[in-house]
Nucleic acid binder design. Structure first.
Lengths: 200, 200
DNA sequence: AAAAAATTCTAATCTGGATTAAAATAATTC
DNA sequence: GAATTATTTTAATCCAGATTAGAATTTTTT
């Protein structure tokens, strides 16, 4: 009966589940969280989860796809809105961080890609590679347009993304902190990129 | 008979074990690596590992302590050798990265602290907190001596350390890459700190 | 409000991989 | 080179936590 397939009860509940799972995985690690832990956060029984996912492996997989989607969306917005390459980098950082610490719930840190089954693992790796490549393309665009100093885009990309990816390890929901991250990270991670900084 | 307790056969073999375990954990994730995986890398039986550690939990714990020690040593050298705060930051990054990608083997990424048993978890968290605090102290020293621009040291610390901590996720032993990381990371992560960069 | 479909629960089973016990081998000491 | 100690193996056991089957409940449809 739902107009939009994303509004269906099933989809909504499943999404709640993915957020609960992401929270647990980030907090207690993959092996440290049982399906019961996830179920408890939803006031459900562990067995109920199987109505939404085939098994734990698929739960992880879906968490990762969800995280990858958020990253992709953040980058797309940044590309659409930013003028220079530098601006796009800064916007991307802001938007991605926003989705990590913001209200659409925690995003799972992709710590366990290798334990996914081959098909899922390959899919996630593909998303991950594409994402990196697109980020490096932004950096190159910035170098071309002069907004970013010449640099090794592969290493620079890894450095910046690493910083972002690590956030869930130390951020635990405090909104004061969330605001600080949001304010500081785009500056910290990008001001080193400016070829001719302000002398002020 | 060994002069130095660190030279004893037992100690050496255990250290090999920790490196093998760190490699597996970083590569395949905690849950994804069985004790057999670790044992295989050493041409041993899984049961033989129990001669060196009480159980898997302790194996993880020791990996983390080892990683923490490396970080601590890197920072101590940096503090001893660097003049300005900025220089200390750059040296720390270089030394720490060196121990991550260098020959004293992979260092375990601390992804599973929460699944350690309380006593171990607390010990590792303590090491971790101390490390962060010392790094922030360096940043503050740099701000005081003018080599580092005023900034939120907590966030800046998290950003830089996150970048470093994430390296094992994408570095898999290629020594070409190792050299690049070593060359680039200190620059990427610190040049944004300079209050008055060179105009060149 | 009965029937159908969707969702959740109870109560098992099932299992991979951790762990243990005891025996076998290798290294060291005397 | 016999005795002692250190290291590794073989061959079970053991168990937390994933998974399943089927019943119970709740929601939706007609």
């Amino acid at each position: 009966m739902a107009r939009n397939p994303d509004e269906t009860r099933f989809q909504l509940q499943r999404d709640r589940m993915l957020r609960a799972a992401a929270y647990c995985f980030n907090q207690k690690g993959y092996s440290g969280t049982s399906l019961k832990d996830v179920a408890d956060r939803l006031s459900l029984t562990d067995a109920a989860l199987y109505y939404y996912v085939r098994n734990k492996e698929e739960l992880v997989y879906l968490c990762y796809v969800r995280a990858a989607d958020a990253g992709r969306d953040a980058m797309q917005c940044a590309i659409d809105e930013g003028q220079s390459g530098l601006e796009q980098v800064q916007l991307y950082i802001r938007y991605h961080v926003e989705s990590i610490v913001g209200e659409n719930g925690p995003l799972a840190i992709m710590s366990e890609i290798p334990s996914l089954k081959p098909a899922h693992r390959d899919a996630v790796l593909e998303l991950s590679r594409t994402h990196s490549a697109r980020f490096e393309a932004i950096l190159e665009r910035g170098i071309a347009d002069g907004s970013i100093a010449s640099c090794d885009v592969r290493m620079t990309g890894n450095a910046i993304m690493g910083s972002i990816n690590w956030i869930p390890k130390w951020f635990h929901g405090d909104q004061q902190v969330a605001q600080k991250i949001l304010d500081q990270f785009p500056i910290i991670l990008s001001c080193g990129l400016k070829p001719v900084p302000q002398v002020s």
